[in-house]
Design a protein around this nucleic acid. Structure first.
Length: 923
RNA sequence: GGGCGCAUAGCUCAGCGGUAGAGCACUACGUUGACAUCGUAGUGGUCGUAGGUUCGAUCCCUGCUGCGCCCACCA
């Protein structure tokens, strides 16, 4: 027996570590959900809870549907974030900055990871996320390390990874290169300084505008537009860079925009992306004047050596002001690049880094989405994917930090690079190269971008590079659920790396594992993606052989992009704004199920989720309602599972009616969940439980349960059955309460209901009950209108010529009386008033409780409304085009509508006439 | 500058080529043995704007406005 109060805490703990995840079936269709591995530093925020809940709903649903579901959890080592965090803790312990060795820091991080790095896993369990935690992987575990090195070597061998000196975005705080995606453009207040650059051997000068005066020491030219009349005579002349008097040329370059600044721009190739390009065009040297910390360095005056860039900026301006070289200082707002993680202003910097030739890998990855091998939901996110992929830049994968996958490259004494999976392999290569052994090799100091190992997640978690059974079974049969901001970082990289990885297709499993890439391993049998991929990577001739060996497959088929969770005002949640909602607190107050239900119900596509504390009450209230309904059923012996019960055998119209509602609910929910419409699924169960089952069915059956009716047993059985169906369809969304209730009603294993097995013909009953509902609602409505208190029973006399409705009245008289608060009599005494319904008139005795006038008013209002509807329909029916072009059904529907309105109106008008003639009597 | 999304009741949002929907809020009534985290009945909308397609448009198409976002550029 359920407790009177619905208290999620009383049972959620009990099912916390439910074993569903382990429910695997090797004979069933494989289905995998790849959980986006949270950062090892992470703790559950409300965005996670949405993302994880949606996947968990799919996972549980698919399990019930009989799939062999692998819900793969993991943790991401999150290079920069984690290192920053642990470093900070170490410094707080009093260990001086910079005194830790690489090995010591790594030891600290590993220790921290083991001790407190995985708290999010426990929080996921509170939320009921049914990952197979026994398969937990870490992006830096041994398997990942091997796989990362292996793929690196593959990519290097295929010339898709290379090392080069390039200008990259440099983070002076982290002291590392970062990728373009980790750059955040922020609009800030700044100054545009107009500075005088004096011409050599002349008192004349040219005004150069810059926002970054501290970089003048790196100036190697001044550029003007060749078409700019103002500066025509300056081209080719030499100016002196202020403060250092370095002579540089005035060059003509299209890059200089006459409309911007002064029209003359200083060229500092080592410290600006555009200047770098200009420098290349004009063969100018790149003079680097800044170190990794963002301090001035190199060819700068003594006073500026090792001065911070911002201090240097100030000093340069001061000195130039003293020399009266500042023409004007313009206050401007401009966008400046900042580091996503560090929050500091970035510096363009020329460094030697490792890159992935993303443009090449993108070709098959674009094709895979274009040809539908991979589908995004909602589909419009594919545009964003294409937009980025079509303009993709080389991916800088090296980071100058310590926490991460060390780049598997070793250097010989002469700097010769050997890329190999491990030092032994590197030695072998070195021995061959130098023709002698005992070569001293030094490993590259850098580590890989965190997203490199994340990009390999789909196959690494399945055991790659080993050709495991899991890899054969689950690779490609995957769903990934994530936020739109992760499409570039993760989704795109997984597709690119997945298509390149050597995920061979075992012919035996081919037909099962891949619908798109056919059973044969011949090139001809492959669709666009792998073909394009093969030819773009290896050339058309070599493609066949390589593809035969590689049999590239997409890692997954479906990508669901979920919404952003905002606060109730629609603001992005952030710690600094203080509007962050803690999902664990919500679980504590309302229960995890309530949170899950609420998130699901709000997950409609194309709209962000605005959520406040109270929003979760929607879910909590619904679950309370269900709880109480089951409790009522229990009190009446209507909540125990009977395996023998055959729902197709029920006869009572109420039973058939609820069976019909539930059958529709099941198929509706299936359609919704199959299309990732979590909001619809949540709504369907809500409406069926609340509006059909609680509001009507339970009221219908109360008199039967309290009587000695013959139907009592059947009603009990079907009520138990109904509850069981609710518990089952609710399970994916709200597993805790489902488990609790199913335990209470004595169900063993959870399963998905089979709507097709319900073959009962319910139409007749549905029609009757609809009629009954209509009568009850109408009587309630008129009673309210008349202001008759519910405690007072109304005497009514019911007349109808419709045999169907006569049946209804005959069969459900007791229900009708009870629910509408009436008592039916053959003959009314005293004053009465007629109420016109569809095909039925109910005469109600009211004994002067309302005025005739107000009843006439009411009827006239009703008629007005009906006339409007009627005119609407008549207008169409009078239109020849409508009659000719609209479908037969629609036309007939309109005719029927007009007819039934006419009937109603004429009855009402008749009543009004009678009311006009006489004081109401027995009408 | 290029692109994407959104605009429906006071609020939050569904919906849809053929009579405009839910929850919350609001109004009135109600504690009848499941449930006040509740029940019953209501109030409330020319579906952002202007055109077009159509027999018919809130829905499809185009322009516009407003809001949000992404990418690029910015001396």
């Amino acid at each position: 027996m359920l407790e009177k109060n619905f208290d999620p805490k009383s049972f959620e703990k009990k099912f916390l570590f439910d074993e569903e995840a382990a429910r695997r079936n090797e004979n069933a269709e494989p289905f995998m959900i790849l959980l986006p591995p949270p950062n090892v530093t992470g703790s559950l925020h409300v965005g996670h809870s949405l993302c994880y809940t949606l996947q968990d709903i799919v996972a549980r649903y698919k399990r019930l549907k009989g799939y062999d579901v692998l819900f793969q959890p993991g943790l991401d080592h999150a290079g920069i974030v984690t290192q920053l965090l642990v470093e900070k803790q170490v410094y707080e312990r009093g260990i001086p900055k910079g005194s830790l060795t690489r090995e010591a820091l790594l030891e600290e991080i590993w220790a921290w990871k083991e001790k407190s790095g995985c708290q999010i896993l426990g929080q996921m369990k509170v939320l009921g996320i049914s990952c197979d935690f026994s398969r937990l992987r870490f992006t830096m575990d041994e398997g990942s390390q091997k796989a990362v090195a292996k793929l690196f070597v593959n990519l290097y061998d295929d010339s898709l990874i290379y090392r080069g000196e390039r200008m990259v975005n440099w983070d002076p705080l982290i002291r590392s290169a970062i990728s373009d995606l980790e750059v955040i453009e922020k609009e800030i207040d700044g100054n545009l300084w107009h500075l005088k650059y004096k011409l050599q051997d002349s008192e004349d000068f040219i005004t150069v505008a810059t926002t970054r005066p501290e970089t003048i020491f790196g100036d190697v030219a001044v550029a003007v537009n060749p078409a700019d009349e103002r500066y025509k005579d300056f081209i080719g002349k030499t100016v002196l860079v202020p403060l250092i008097n370095r002579p540089v040329q005035i060059i003509a370059d299209e890059y200089a925009d006459p409309a911007k600044g002064s029209g003359a721009v200083k060229i500092t190739p080592a410290h600006d992306f555009n200047d770098f390009e200009v420098g290349k065009r004009h063969n100018l040297p790149a003079s680097n004047i800044m170190n990794a910390n963002g301090e001035l360095d190199g060819d700068v005056p003594e006073a500026f050596q090792h001065m911070d860039r911002f201090a240097a900026r100030k000093l340069v301006v001061e000195l130039m002001e003293k020399e009266e070289l500042v023409v004007k200082t313009e206050k401007i707002k401009h966008k400046v690049p900042f580091g996503d993680r560090s929050g500091v202003m970035l510096e363009p910097r020329i460094t030697r880094q490792w890159f992935i030739d993303a443009a090449k890998l993108a070709v098959p990855a674009i094709e895979a989405v274009k040809n539908g091998d991979i589908k995004f939901t909602p589909k419009h996110w594919e545009n964003l994917y294409f937009e980025w992929m079509n303009n993709i830049e080389p991916w800088c994968i090296s980071r100058q930090i310590w926490w991460g996958h060390r780049i598997p490259a070793w250097y010989g004494p002469d700097g010769q690079v050997f890329v190999a999976e491990n030092i032994q392999e590197a030695w072998k290569k070195a021995t061959t190269f130098y023709g002698k052994d005992n070569i001293k090799l030094v490993q590259d100091e850098d580590v890989l971008d965190t997203w490199y190992s994340s990009g390999m997640w789909p196959f690494v978690t399945l055991g790659w590079p080993e050709n495991t059974k899991d890899l054969q079974r689950f690779y490609s049969n995957m769903l990934v659920v994530t936020g739109f901001d992760i499409i570039f970082f993760w989704i795109a990289r997984m597709i690119m790396m997945g298509l390149h990885a050597n995920v061979t297709l075992d012919p035996l499993n081919a037909s099962r594992a891949s619908e798109v890439y056919a059973t044969s391993l011949k090139l001809d049998s492959f669709s666009g993606a792998s073909k394009t991929y093969a030819s773009s990577t290896f050339g058309v001739e070599a493609a066949s052989a390589k593809v035969n060996a590689r049999a590239a497959r997409t890692p997954f088929r479906n990508v669901y992009i979920h919404a952003l969770v905002r606060d109730e005002k629609g603001n992005k949640m952030s710690k600094s704004k203080g509007n962050v909602i803690d999902p664990l607190k919500l679980c504590d107050v309302y229960g995890a199920d309530a949170l899950r239900y609420t998130l699901a119900s709000m997950a409609s596509p194309g709209r962000d989720i605005k959520m406040g504390q109270q929003t979760v009450e929607i879910g909590r209230n619904f679950l309370t309602k269900l709880w109480n309904a089951v409790r009522f059923a229990q009190m009446n012996d209507c909540a125990s599972y009977n395996k023998e019960f055959d729902v197709n055998s029920v006869e009572h119209p109420f039973a058939k009616w609820i069976v019909h509602k539930i059958r529709n609910m099941i198929t509706d929910i299936e359609n919704s969940l199959d299309n990732y419409r979590f909001d619809e699924a949540a709504r369907h169960i809500y409406q069926c439980v609340w509006n059909s089952f609680c509001d009507w069915y339970m009221e219908f059956i109360k008199p039967i349960l309290q009587s000695a009716s013959d139907s009592k047993d059947e009603i009990r059985e079907v009520t138990s059955w109904a509850i069981l169906q609710f518990v089952r369809v609710l399970y994916p969304i709200a597993p805790f309460i489902s488990k609790k209730l199913s335990e209470d009603i004595g169900v063993g294993e959870m399963a998905w209901p089979d709507a097709n097995a319900i073959t009962l013909d319910c139409n007749d009953s549905v029609q009757k009950i609809d009629g009954l509902q209509n009568i009850i609602s109408s009587v309630r409505s008129i009673r309210k209108f008349m202001g008759i208190p519910p405690s007072e029973k109304l005497e009514v006399n019911i007349e109808t010529a419709d045999p169907k409705l006569q049946d209804v009245f005959g069969e459900y008289k007791e229900i009708l009386l009870r629910m509408a608060g009436i008592s039916a009599v053959d003959k009314l005494e005293g004053q009465s008033i007629p109420l016109v319904l569809d095909g039925i008139v109910i005469h109600i005795r009211f004994d002067g409780k309302i005025s005739v006038q107000s009843e006439k008013e009411r009827l006239n209002n009703e008629i007005k409304k009906l006339m409007k509807d009627k005119d609407n329909a008549l207008n169409r029916l009078n239109n020849n085009d409508f009659l000719q072009k609209a479908s037969e059904e629609v036309v007939q529907e309109h005719r029927d509508r007009v007819e039934s309105i006419n009937e109603k109106i004429s009855k009402m008008e008749y009543i009004i006439n009678v009311l006009n003639l006489t004081p109401p009597a027995f009408i």
